[in-house]
Computed example of a mutant assay.
Amino acid sequence: MPVFVKKLLTWGSVAFLIYFVAFRPDGAAQMFKAIGAALIAMFQGFGDFLTTLMT
């Protein structure tokens, strides 16, 4: 992928994130809460897997 396209996608993503947080703060907060909960669940499952391996 050309460097220009990567930069364009990166800056576009940053601009969308800023727009989303500025104009839809409640929706952005709910989205980040959901992402955080999903990450916590994934790490909890990974920890449970490792614990099961050790016992």
Results as ranks from 00 to 15, higher is better:
M1C: 06
M1E: 09
M1Y: 10
V3K: 12
V3E: 13
V3H: 07
V3I: 13
F4V: 07
F4Q: 11
F4P: 00
F4Y: 04
F4W: 06
V5Y: 01
V5D: 09
K6M: 09
K6H: 09
K6L: 11
K7V: 14
K7D: 10
K7L: 14
L8D: 01
L8I: 10
T10A: 13
T10Y: 13
T10N: 08
W11G: 00
W11Y: 13
W11S: 01
W11M: 05
G12I: 00
G12Y: 02
A15M: 03
A15W: 07
F16V: 12
F16M: 04
L17E: 13
L17R: 08
Y19R: 02
Y19Q: 05
Y19G: 07
F20P: 00
F20A: 14
F20M: 10
V21E: 00
V21Y: 01
A22H: 10
A22L: 14
A22S: 14
F23G: 03
F23K: 11
R24G: 06
R24V: 13
R24I: 13
R24L: 15
R24W: 15
R24F: 15
P25E: 13
P25C: 13
P25I: 07
D26N: 09
D26C: 03
D26W: 05
G27M: 01
G27T: 00
A28F: 01
A28K: 00
A28E: 00
A28M: 03
A29D: 10
A29K: 11
Q30A: 15
Q30G: 10
Q30V: 07
M31V: 06
M31I: 00
M31E: 11
M31D: 02
F32V: 14
K33A: 15
A34W: 12
A34L: 04
A34G: 10
I35N: 03
G36V: 04
G36N: 09
G36Y: 02
A37S: 12
A37R: 14
A37I: 11
A38L: 15
A38E: 09
I40Y: 08
I40M: 07
I40W: 11
A41L: 12
M42L: 11
M42G: 03
M42V: 08
M42N: 08
F43P: 01
Q44Y: 12
Q44R: 10
G45S: 08
G45F: 04
G45E: 00
F46R: 06
F46Q: 09
G47S: 08
G47V: 01
D48H: 04
D48E: 15
D48S: 11
D48C: 05
D48R: 11
F49K: 10
F49M: 13
F49E: 02
F49C: 06
L50P: 00
L50F: 12
L50C: 07
T51H: 05
T51A: 07
T51C: 02
T52W: 11
T52E: 06
T52R: 13
T52V: 07
L53M: 15
M54S: 08
M54K: 12
M54F: 10
M54P: 01
